[in-house]
Amino acid sequence: MTPPKRNIFHTPEGYFERLPEEILAKSHKKQHSAKQIYWYGAVAAALIFAIMLTIFLQQTPEEQVDLEANLQPEIEMYINSGHWQAEDILSFADNPDELLEEIILTEWGAGESPEEEQEDGWF
């Protein structure tokens, strides 16, 4: 069998004259769409962030306490593992002096100064 090899497929008139411009136009369009998708994504992310921030700021103090309570185990883990030192915790606080005062009172009791405790410890 020797089947024919002639090309039997044809194109509409002027097809190959138009094709390069059509491809370039489609390529530009696709690039533009990709950029649009990127920007839509960025805008969506910003909107989500803004909504989350609004919800957070609108929370009642009780809800915020709950949030802090949820964070407590994580903070404890950082402290217990030695990842955070006392200085680190104090540096996060708004009132480090007051906190330090409280810690001193709890650890050594009212009326005792650390210097006294330290001195006692030498004997």
């Binding site: 089947p3 024919p4 002639r6 039997i8 497929f9 044809h10 194109t11 509409p12």
Partner: peptide
């Protein structure tokens, strides 16, 4: 847009 004969 196809111009083949019977065998093609």
């Amino acid at each position: 847009l196809v111009s083949g004969d019977y065998i093609e």
